[in-house]
């Protein structure tokens, strides 16, 4: 990966919640380098701080210490226009499709907002075509959907619409926070395929936040393993999964039931 352009770098990134005796360090001096077109998985169990780290990368949480560099420069999120510029490049998909949608608005509004964020001045016709194209990318029919409310859709359909949103925005970096943990196995394959296609077409960097080691292995080039706020091991996916070094990584991989080898339940 080192021959690719460095896109996001985290140095000593730390997040502390609360103060005084109730202080908890959710993310503890984490370093990372993400490159253009790379697929990275941040693997950890609940409470490992992976979601907090993701929120910091998204610019939704302020870091308590350390820094994030974007394209070689420290990222600036001071003013609203700074943030708007950052979010043009860095986008996200969340875990729960049902809570990602505002129940009060039709599906169309979600896609309309994308056109607005990009600042495009389009005619009604062009807008329609653009939204239709995005929907057909995720195998949805815009004609049938645009007038519907989110609760009329299935979880898989909603999550696909979220991908359509990303397709319209074509950001440089996509942070996907457990995008498939609430959809069925069959929809999961579809969603993963679509995300991989986005990477191939736009050279997008995708960061998966997941607890699913199997998924991380399947999709990513690089894996970071997180435990209690720290990154305990990182490297190419093949190496991490097939030849783990850190004891926590070994434990994590051996706890997952597999189908070609025995599952040691221990004593």
């Amino acid at each position: 990966m080192s021959n690719r352009e460095l896109l996001i770098r985290g140095k000593d990134l730390t997040k502390v919640f609360g103060y005084g005796t109730q202080k908890t360090t959710a993310v503890d001096a984490v370093d990372f380098d993400f490159h253009k077109g790379e697929i990275i998985s941040l693997v950890g169990e609940s409470g490992s701080g992976k979601t907090t780290l993701a929120k910091m990368m998204m610019g939704l949480l302020k870091e308590s210490g350390g820094s994030i560099e974007y394209k070689g420069k420290p990222r600036r999120l001071k003013s609203h226009s700074d943030r708007k510029r950052y979010w043009k490049d860095i986008q996200a998909i969340f875990q729960d499709p049902f809570s990602s949608f505002n129940l009060f608005y039709r599906v169309e509004k979600l896609l309309m907002d994308c056109i607005k964020l990009q600042g495009l001045k389009l005619s009604k016709e062009e807008q329609y075509l653009k939204m239709k194209e995005a929907c057909s990318f995720v195998n949805l029919k815009f004609e049938e959907l645009h007038n519907k409310y989110p609760f009329e859709l299935s979880g898989g359909q909603m999550q696909r619409l979220m991908i359509a949103r990303i397709f319209m925005l074509h950001p440089k970096v996509l942070i996907a926070d457990e995008p498939t943990s609430m959809v069925d196995a069959c929809s999961r394959s579809t969603i993963l395929d679509m995300l991989l296609k986005l990477r191939d077409e736009n050279e997008m960097t995708i960061i998966f936040i997941t607890h699913d080691v199997g998924l991380a292995y399947y999709v990513s080039d690089t894996i970071y393993i997180m435990e209690k706020g720290k990154i305990v091991e990182s490297g190419p996916a093949e190496e991490i999964i097939l030849n783990p070094q850190h004891s926590y990584t070994r434990q994590l991989i051996s706890d997952v039931p597999k189908i070609h080898s025995a599952w040691d339940l221990g004593s």
């Binding site: 195998n139 299935s154 898989g156 359909q157 196995a185 069959c186 929809s187 999961r188 394959s189 579809t190 993963l192 395929d193 699913d212 080691v213 199997g214 998924l215 991380a216 292995y217 399947y218 996916a237 093949e238 999964i241 097939l242 991989i253 997952v256 039931p257 597999k258 189908i259 070609h260 080898s261």
Partner: peptide, 20 residues
């Protein structure tokens, strides 16, 4: 569509079922 962290999983095509 099973995903497990085992050798050979990577690069395999996952099955998908269109529709609902």
């Amino acid at each position: 569509s099973i995903l497990v962290p085992e050798e050979g999983m990577k690069g395999q095509k996952l099955a998908a079922i269109p529709g609902a």
